[in-house]
Design a protein around this nucleic acid. Structure first.
Lengths: 202, 202
DNA sequence: TTTTAATGTAAGCAGTGTAAACATTAAAGT
DNA sequence: ACTTTAATGTTTACACTGCTTACATTAAAA
């Protein structure tokens, strides 16, 4: 019964694109295939996204919103526990939404300030980390707090990257003593234990 | 004078592609433009790189070799100094070769084990970090050392990512109190000072 | 010297981002 | 209610892409 005007095409395109992005990777996502999968003409998306980067920005924004929601879940009254829970959720998000995570932190959208909503959603994620760290830490110096929080994010982000890059590897390589794979694996196996140390050594 | 057979086309293509990749970003790099810039036919590169990913892998390999060389420079007899010098070099490499760094750590080559030379060159970089950390640290437990080294790399890698993502930003944003930009900026301004703290808090 | 394999080219296919011209319709102005 | 207008859809078209296939040249091996 679909009429000429769709009514809610933009959001539907974003949802569909997010799905496709995570399914196939953002490099495989084409505007044409998106249009096809959404049952509209090839150029319909251009009414809502001037360029592909604009589309990427929308997907990334949704990604940060989802990330923020994920790391905010299951919070208790124990501020240290909250940090490790959040951190674990962050890493899990990075591993379970690898393709979307790549889009969010890669170069698909080189400058977030071009997209205020994207910048805001990314910043919201940082603010959550800072808030939770503030609740946990006794540090008062604002500058030092910011510095520590940047390190937290850096460490989390870096860990996700390395875990992803080296996690799945042919078994024989596990016998090579000169690779970080063994370390990565042991970290991976008992993430909780390591995350406690993690926040005691920022 | 150029003859039908080039003689050294493969290496010349890799060099040219590395240059173009850093200049324009790896997403803008096309095999056709590479061929044009190298004054060969559009399909000549396919004799040396079966797919574009193969070409990416070659560029990434050169990138890791360059990174390894960079962080190995200016080493002294002071093991702690060596760490900070190496770390600074690492971060600088990430910022000054941003596009190549993206190729190396992004999803252009999703699985390094498909390219033994690439895996090896990436691993060489890790080994250097571990060696330098070993010289500095008093830790004996091998497992713990590996863990710390992964954290070092993660932290460095994460810092590069965040510095890149938030470094250049419209001035007005610097007045926003709720962004990590201020922290990033202060870290950036006095990187040396922060790197010393960095290695005392792995 | 012949054969063969490596390495170059030319032509072509299917898919891409995006611009321009046109079609339909919801919303705004009278 | 009727017209105008702006939003949102489609069709067509262009230059570009990765990659395949068939063919050309030549260095190295037999």
């Amino acid at each position: 019964m679909k009429s000429y005007h769709h009514g809610n095409l933009k959001q539907e395109l974003i949802d569909c694109a997010s799905k496709m992005c995570e399914r196939d990777g953002y490099t495989k996502l084409s505007i044409r295939s998106l249009a096809k999968e959404s049952n509209v003409s090839q150029t319909a998306p251009y009414r809502h996204f001037k360029t592909k980067e604009d589309l990427y920005a929308e997907i990334a924004t949704e990604g940060f919103n989802k990330l923020h929601k994920t790391i905010s879940k299951n919070q208790s009254s124990d501020s240290e526990k909250n940090l490790t829970i959040g951190a674990k959720a962050y890493i899990k998000f990075g591993l379970n939404n690898a393709n979307t995570y790549d889009l969010m932190f890669g170069t698909a959208v080189p400058d977030f300030t071009k997209y205020p909503l994207l910048f805001q959603s990314a910043n919201k994620t940082y603010l959550h980390i800072r808030t939770k760290f503030n609740e946990f830490s006794k540090i008062k110096d604002q500058k030092l707090i910011e510095e520590k929080c940047v390190y937290i994010w850096a460490k989390l982000h870096g860990l996700v990257g390395l875990l992803r890059k080296l996690e799945v590897v042919p078994e024989k390589l596990l016998d090579m003593p000169d690779t970080p794979i063994k370390a990565i694996n042991s970290i991976n196996k008992d993430l909780d234990k390591y995350l406690i140390k993690f926040f005691r050594n920022i």
